[in-house]
Design a binder for these strands. Structure first.
Length: 573
RNA sequence: CGGGCUGUGGCGCAGUUUGGUAGCGCGCUUGCUUUGGGAGCAAGAGGUCGUCGGUUCAAGUCCGACCAGCCCGACCA
């Protein structure tokens, strides 16, 4: 490609509404343009990189025996009603009607359709299978953000494994885990696999791949001591034991105007330190008002509540609902003697004595509360949010807490969809079993953005050679100088002949403009051809990462750069 | 959905307080000069001021409604 003929609209300044580094750089370097919130055009450079990302994913999927298919994105709503996800997905599912007034949806993931195709498998002899596609997904996100990191329309590689039993699923799951590690390594990412919640997918186990980044939206808990890694929505931690003293009797006492854990602790330090208090929250869980009990200094993690109760709709109760239920306002709530609403307590409250909690009477609390004696807890669960400084359950080391981007997610679905769609096979004894499924996703454009987040400097993007839009740029310092022109064209043709993705910057621009553009776009190798060098039979080779430059003989440079490019393509393999 | 903010040439912004017929930088076009880190001079092109309605002799500016986009939160395979 000749830069003079390419559409590479670089910008000196980023649009004011771009905040995330990857968003700013991908726009400035001419890879993407926004069309609507969470909706982007891939310009020529963006499309080149996107196709290379797809190619890597395809190679690794094919390597584990996966077969590529292509399903429609436009689905009849009935298929989604059949799995129950038409309502479950709520407003995130794009819904529309066709001209005959039939309800349709745009696919946001395709377990349903793949399960439907799995109904054409009848025998264990035809299993296992891994099917995948590289396709557009639509999600009506409540809040698209950060350029390509959270969008409403994007390309996803989604694959689905079909097995006769759970042992088979385990195999497919681990195959995907390893394939994903190879994919991320080849993309230049250092993503790690962490335990995660399954959310609305259903299923027994899920693992997310997270690239550490300040632009990320997920909080990850890791342990350097033993390698424990989990999403905050799933993570657990060990607590320092607390000495509660002898058992005492429960006693109500006045606490006028004290409505917060902190205020109560300051007023009654001897009986109401935060770790001696029971925090009482009222949540409406699938329509059922429910008391949630935590230690005073702990925070609820709503996803844990959702996962534990298997509910789909969870929200804090409104103040009026709370007063109606308990007869008091927030600040004086407690579980003592409450039998007309379910009570779920966090495990950290097990066995605790001499606690303080609200008396369900404004301005009064109880002290001397013994949780299991005085409160009719119906259900114990891990509900608290792990905090910085907590210790590892496995090994006791201090846990680390950091932010990251979810670049991939793999799920053990089980039989939810095969049962819903009747994907049943017979085993060698003639017994029928629903197919055991797994589901595995990678967001293509989000991965592009994650690579930029992880690979850039002040000058711009630093693409790994594996997915750079061009591997080499030949920069003509003086394209009007016949010797420079001739030498540059010779290098260009030589590299093309060697199968290198090369672009020649033959624009009639000042050198500074060309250098700045090459660095902004992030091309891994730059060969600078200038009059002085050519006269001496030399050119300069600049490595984008680090921007170090060396002189290379005109006659050697094609071979040398071809070698470097070839080595760069091996990244992560 | 709650809170905050923003819509003026391709990009970044001023102008709105105090209504008078739209401006700056970058980019773009042409010419001359320049040519190893985002050039200089000169002449140009380009704007329904987010949309609709209202007030007024007159609206980018005042009033109302709506739309879009961004940020925080909620939400999120």
């Amino acid at each position: 490609m000749r830069w003079s003929q390419a559409h590479i609209p670089t910008l000196r300044e980023a649009p004011a509404d771009a905040e995330a580094v990857s968003h700013r750089l991908l726009v400035r370097a001419g890879f993407i343009r926004q069309i609507a919130a969470g909706s982007y055009t891939m310009l020529p450079l963006g499309q080149r990189t996107r196709l290379k990302v797809e190619r890597i994913i395809r190679e690794e999927m094919d390597a584990i025996g996966a077969q590529e298919m292509l399903l429609p994105t436009l689905h009849p709503a009935d298929i989604w009603r059949k799995s129950g996800r038409y309502d479950l997905m709520g407003d995130n599912l794009f819904k529309l009607k066709d001209r005959k007034d039939t309800d349709m949806v745009l696919g946001m993931t395709e377990e349903e359709i793949f399960a439907l195709h799995a109904t054409e498998i009848f025998s264990y002899r035809d299993l296992p299978q891994i099917w995948y596609q590289m396709h557009i997904k639509f999600r009506d996100e409540p809040r698209p953000k950060a350029g390509l990191l959270r969008v409403r329309e994007f390309t996803m590689k989604d694959s689905y494994s079909l097995d006769i039993d759970w042992a088979g699923l385990d195999v497919a799951f681990e195959k995907h885990r390893e394939a994903y590690k190879r994919i991320f390594a080849r993309l230049g990412l250092s993503a790690v696999d962490v335990e995660a919640s399954s959310g609305t997918m259903g299923g027994s186990e899920s693992v997310e791949f997270i690239q550490r980044s300040e632009a990320g939206e997920d909080w990850i808990v890791t342990c350097d001591g033993c390698g424990y890694r989990a999403n905050l929505e799933k993570a657990t931690s060990a607590l320092v034991p607390i000495e509660d003293g002898e058992s005492t009797s429960i006693e109500k006492f006045p606490t006028p105007g004290l409505r917060t854990i902190k205020a109560l602790a300051e007023a009654f330090p001897e009986v109401a330190a935060p770790e001696r208090q029971i925090k009482t929250l009222v949540y409406v869980v699938d329509g059922q008002p429910t008391l949630i009990l935590l230690r005073g200094d702990h925070e609820l993690h709503e996803q844990k509540l959702i996962d534990h109760t298997g509910s789909t709709n969870v929200r804090p109760a409104h103040p009026e609902e709370i007063r109606e239920l308990l007869g008091a306002d927030p600040g004086s709530l407690g579980g003592v003697g409450v039998t007309h609403a379910p009570i779920i307590a966090d495990n950290a409250l097990r066995g605790r004595r001499n606690m303080t909690t609200g008396a369900n009477e404004d301005d009064f609390h109880y002290k001397g509360v013994e949780v299991e004696r005085d409160i009719p807890v119906g259900d114990w669960a891990d509900l608290r949010t792990v905090a910085l400084g907590d210790r590892c359950v496995e090994c006791g080391s201090a846990l680390d807490l950091w932010k990251g981007i979810e670049v991939g997610h793999i799920f053990k679905l089980g039989t939810k969809y095969s049962e819903a769609f009747g994907a049943i096979v017979q085993d060698e004894h003639g017994d029928s079993h629903p197919i055991v499924m797994g589901s595995y996703g990678i967001g293509v454009e989000r991965n592009m953005a994650a690579v930029v987040e992880a690979n850039h400097d002040d000058a711009g993007i630093i693409w790994p050679a594996t997915i750079a839009p061009y591997e080499v740029v030949v920069t003509l310092v003086r394209p009007d100088d016949p010797a420079v022109k001739e030498a540059g064209e010779r290098l260009y043709s030589g590299l093309l002949a060697n199968g290198v993705d090369v672009i020649i910057d033959d624009r009639e621009e000042r050198p500074g403009v060309k250098f700045a553009d090459a660095e902004l776009v992030g091309i891994p190798f730059r060969i600078t051809v200038g009059p002085k060098g050519v006269a001496e039979g030399k050119v300069e080779l600049t490595i984008r990462r680090g921007l170090e430059t060396e002189e290379v003989g005109l006659d050697q440079v094609v071979a040398k750069v071809t070698e470097l490019v070839t080595a760069g393509r091996q990244l992560g393999r």
